[in-house]
């Protein structure tokens, strides 16, 4: 970079837009929580909403140790998390491979893409009783349900992401005599990664829903199983404690995938550092 270019870049950096100090978005997150809590506290304490429908915040907090230290709670949460992770891994792998397969052939796309998309219009939830009837109340059915719920998001984002490579980049690979597989591995897959991560993020959410719904419909363990039990005894406060754990699972999953994306698709997240200006 020449001196003139450096000065031009410095001028861009000094523009008011770049300089304006941003406040942390977490301040906004922190603001919304007390607001919700206040409304919740108000409608329950004043009995506008009866406690059997919505427990008071205080009663949920009080129920916390009772639920968490109950016998086997750790096993139940591990069971549900295992189902989610297993189902997500299975569904995402199938979705990714199927996306790669269909992206490699327009004939296969014409043959199977409409059918696959039509199938996705069926809510996977309604298949839960059928899957349970097939494989029983064990973990296998929950894993299958979670896989079924998340595969399409990964499949469709993989398929569209693999088509995103620039024509010039494809031509470069062709001019070097690259095989289809080399073009796939060295160009198409890396190009698709940012989009695929969008699919993984979406798929993780639906995998969680899949596993929980399946537990809810029929199970012998897991957080969904606990929920059915607490609902049966009209223990609404304990029921809400479990909902809180789903929230935690969702948040941790989001953060894990977000972190993986940041590390793997580093070229989209790293700020332009201009090593030329850092050198003396």
């Amino acid at each position: 970079m020449t001196r003139t270019e450096q000065i031009a870049q410095l001028a861009i950096d000094a523009s008011p837009r770049a300089k304006r100090k941003k406040f942390s978005p977490y301040i906004l997150t922190a603001l919304i929580a007390p607001l919700i809590l206040a409304v919740w506290w108000f409608v329950t304490e004043t009995r506008i909403v009866p406690p059997i429908l919505l427990p008071t915040p205080a009663s949920v907090v009080q129920s916390f140790p009772r639920v968490v230290f109950a016998d086997g709670f750790g096993d139940q949460i591990i069971r549900t998390v295992t189902e989610i992770v297993g189902g997500f891994a299975l569904g995402a792998t199938i979705g990714f491979l199927l996306g790669m397969l269909l992206s490699s052939s327009s004939r296969l796309r014409a043959a199977y893409l409409p059918a696959l998309s039509a199938l996705e219009a069926i809510p996977t939830v309604i298949l839960a009783p059928i899957i349970i009837a097939w494989v029983g109340f064990g973990m296998e059915g929950k894993v299958m349900q979670a896989a079924l719920a998340c595969f399409y998001a990964v499949f469709i984002t993989t398929l569209s992401g693999l088509g995103l490579a620039e024509p010039n980049a494809v031509n470069l690979m062709r001019s070097l005599g690259a095989s289809r597989w080399q073009t796939m591995a060295k160009l198409r897959v890396p190009t698709a990664l940012p989009v695929i991560f969008g699919g993984l993020q979406l798929g993780a959410t639906t995998a969680i829903i899949g596993a929980i719904v399946s537990e809810f419909i029929g199970s012998v363990g897991g957080l969904g199983y606990l929920m059915i039990r607490y609902r049966g005894s009209f223990d609404t406060a304990a029921y809400w404690v479990i909902i809180f754990f789903f929230l935690v699972i969702g948040l941790v999953t989001y953060l894990l995938i977000w972190y993986a994306e940041k590390k793997i698709v580093f070229w989209r997240h790293t700020a332009i550092t201009r090593p030329d200006l850092e050198k003396p």
């Binding site: 620039e166 010039n168 980049a169 031509n171 470069l172 690979m173 001019s175 070097l176 005599g177 690259a178 080399q182 060295k186 160009l187 890396p190 580093f266 070229w267």
Partner: peptide
Amino acid sequence: RQIGMMFQQAVMFPWRTTLDNVLLPVEI
């Protein structure tokens, strides 16, 4: 392989360092 092509865009892969981009042909 005896013919090398250059396009209007540099077509550098952002996930590779400059050196690895330069080495792409022999890798292929």
